[in-house]
Amino acid sequence: MPSDQVNKVNSAQYKKMVEEQAPKSNIGKDCLMAFLFGGSLCVLGQIAFDIAKSAGLDKDLASAVSSISLITLAAILTAFNVFDDIGRIAGAGTLVPITGFANSVVASAMEFKTEGFVFGTSVKLFVIAGPVVVFGTVFSVIYGIILLILKAMVVDVGL
């Protein structure tokens, strides 16, 4: 590499320098924020679940209502241009709950509408959230295939 001829430092030494000197995230504060925001969102999810359940919905539907409540909350905060400010503070606290999934889809929809609703919004809708949907689906199908194989082998898997 030409750089090694002039620069007196080689790649291995340089990588070590960079690693040592790179400013570090304030992990204590980041974790505290992630805990508080993440925990609070889960409590909100639980409240929505309990309300739906007490209105007579079954467990699965109540769970869906809980998800939709948080999705709607995140979508509205994104639409009013404030989710990104919250996310910058909350970090994984808003990213890991379903709110992060909703934000990434809504933000993409808003961002790429300048390229039109077909080639912008629709095409780019899952530009961030895509991996979660794709891998989630693939994992579930793999699990399904394993279940089928076990069933064929007459193993009791509760089916």
Binding site: A22, P23, K24, S25, D30, T78, N81, F83, D84, D85, I86, G87, R88, A90, G91, T94, L95, G100, N103, S104, V106, A107, S108, M110, E111, F112, V127, I128
Partner: peptide, 13 residues
């Protein structure tokens, strides 16, 4: 990087 409204954090570097 990301859409402007995406709520991610940037590393300090």
């Amino acid at each position: 990087r990301y859409p402007l409204e995406y709520g991610g954090q940037r590393p300090p570097t």
